[in-house]
């Protein structure tokens, strides 16, 4: 299977500050990759470069065989590149079901329709309901987003992402800010993602990384300093020094 997402020598600097340097990554269908690194390593910047919210100074980004380096955010989404945010972003004046239904409608190119009530677009609404059930909040569709618990909002954000039928899904700390007892629900939802898509997840929680990822990318000072299986990463002295060291220390103390 050929790569769905390829980065070739992607670099970015803000003024004199190098935030991403010569990143080369390839994701294939079915990949489950974790992106880890200390704070300020440039993880979110890298995600923003991939989605097009930032434009790289150098390098190429190829999505499903097409060069999208200069493509707009929305063009990349239409090609199957979808992300979630570290702090949940949803449409706060819409209900949960409307959030997902809108994504389904947009994905199917039906948002130009201005005369047919959304409620009558049965196939899209049913699809939205199905997605809510997949992520485990099927009974919350009528709730307004602001009335949802934060954990449920994170699940909803996943459902919105799934509605766009991503080929590549970027998850920016999907469990961040979620109370401990709600975290397993997020994990279940992630485990139920379609098998054939490529998923890149930024995550701090090493337990989550070990359970989720087949492969781990370690980012430090904007560079990928190591790639390997979770076990290899954990065993590498260099990575330990750069990142896991402080993490391991913190765990020992707690």
């Amino acid at each position: 299977m050929s790569a769905l997402l390829e980065l070739y020598g992607v670099s970015k600097a803000f003024g004199g500050l190098r935030v991403t340097h010569d990143v080369n990554v390839a994701l294939r269908g079915g990949d489950r990759v974790a992106l880890i690194g200390p704070n300020g390593a440039g993880k979110t910047t890298l995600v923003n470069l991939i989605t097009g919210q930032l434009k790289p100074d150098a390098g190429r980004i190829v999505l499903a065989g097409r060069d999208v380096t200069r493509a707009s955010v929305e063009a990349r989404v239409r090609l199957g590149l979808v992300r979630t945010f570290q702090i949940t972003r949803l449409f706060s004046s819409l209900t949960a079901l409307e959030n997902v239904a809108l994504a389904v409608l947009q994905h199917r190119g039906r948002t130009r329709n201005w005369l047919r009530p959304v409620a009558k677009m049965t196939s899209e609404v049913e699809e939205a309901q199905r997605l809510l059930e997949i992520v485990g909040i099927g009974e919350l569709g009528t709730r307004s987003v602001v009335a949802l618990a934060y954990g449920h909002q994170r699940q909803l954000e996943l459902a919105v992402a799934l509605a766009l039928e991503p080929k590549v899904l970027l998850l920016d700390e999907p469990a961040a800010g979620v109370p401990h007892d709600e975290a397993p629900r997020i994990l279940e939802a992630i485990a139920r993602l379609p098998q054939d898509i490529a998923v890149l997840m930024i995550e701090h929680d090493m337990d989550l990384v070990f359970r989720f990822a087949q492969r781990v990318l370690v980012l430090a000072n904007g560079e990928v300093i190591f790639q390997g299986t979770p076990a290899e990463v954990a065993g590498d002295a260099y990575v330990r020094r750069a990142y896991l060291g402080s993490y391991a220390d913190a765990r020992r103390q707690s």
Partner: peptide, 28 residues
Amino acid sequence: LRIVRSPFGLLTRAIKDDTVKARMIGAS
């Protein structure tokens, strides 16, 4: 009243709520 209930109307409300997210579902 009909137009604001349509997908187009729903999308404009979404744009008002969060432009960045609206682009992230592929909307121009």
